[in-house]
Amino acid sequence: MKKTAQIYLYILIAIICLWHLPSFYNFLTAESETRPFILYSSVSKDFIIRKNEDNKTHCFNSKFEPCTREVYDSILPEYSAKQLAADNRLQDTILGRNVSLKLFTDENLTYRIKPEEVFGPYIHLYQLMESQSGRVELEMPPDVFRITDSGLEFISKKDNTTDKEKSEKFTNALKKADFKFPALEVAANPSERKKYDNGFLLTDAVGKFFHFKMVKGEPYVKQIELPVGVIPVHTFVTEFAGRHHLGFFFDAKGYSYVIELPENKIIKTGLPPVDLENEEFFVMGNIFSWTVRISGQKETTWYALDAKSYKLLDKFTLESKLKPLKGLSFKRNGWVELGWR
């Protein structure tokens, strides 16, 4: 019995060492590594790198040839429009398109997906907002809903009771659109801090794809036609200021697709497969191009996509200088999960 106890103690000590020693080593040997800010310039057809060092901003092209701050502004007018306007340098036409400060402000977009947001712990209660309330400010709904094997169940935030009438109405609307319960994937952005509401993107039990929202208290359900053989696995609703997109999704292999409004047209992007479980996805788009940053542990790659066709224009990779020692870890994407990382 004492032997067993000693073995157990040694196992505990081994766990502690494998858990803390590598991270302590990494902490002692780590060098500061600031990730540069990189955007694709549609003007110069190149990635432009901006770094802050010694409290100064330095700019380079992808060959690490330095450029001045003025040049930086002029080749990235979409992001420097305010500065250009203040300097009276904002042109009326760029790359053959009429532009203005307002246009850039309205059309620029950003979206970030962190692994823990997709794979982390999540309470499966959803909030269906009113997408056409007639008010400028959005409001959180007075209820939440759950998706069961047979339908939706709206629960009132006022008294924690099921609103049977509403549940039935919305369930029926989905069923009428041939939605098969339960849902495989549910996506929305329940927040008052957005400009408008695009509702939900739902993947049903058989892999069909739906846009679902509430319009003036009534359910709005529309099936989105998918390319043959494509099933959305990770879906994201977007509420960009330009209102040209409903959202985007990734299929089982990690390929990404953009859903364009108003016809809910699905366009496959030129991005390679993304491993959302281990990589962070960040997009910054403008009227000419989208810069997509995909950061993994070993390297970060910036992809430039054409803003219309989503075809790949260029890419740029920076390897991480850090080679952290692996060790036992109890954390993964927001979960407490034992692993070797």
Binding site: L12, I16, G334, W335, E337
Partner: peptide, 21 residues
Amino acid sequence: VAAFVLKIFFITDSLGAYMPS
């Protein structure tokens, strides 16, 4: 040893985050 092992019980407060372990 006890302090380090007990730390495992307090890694996060997130709702339901402990279910896999």
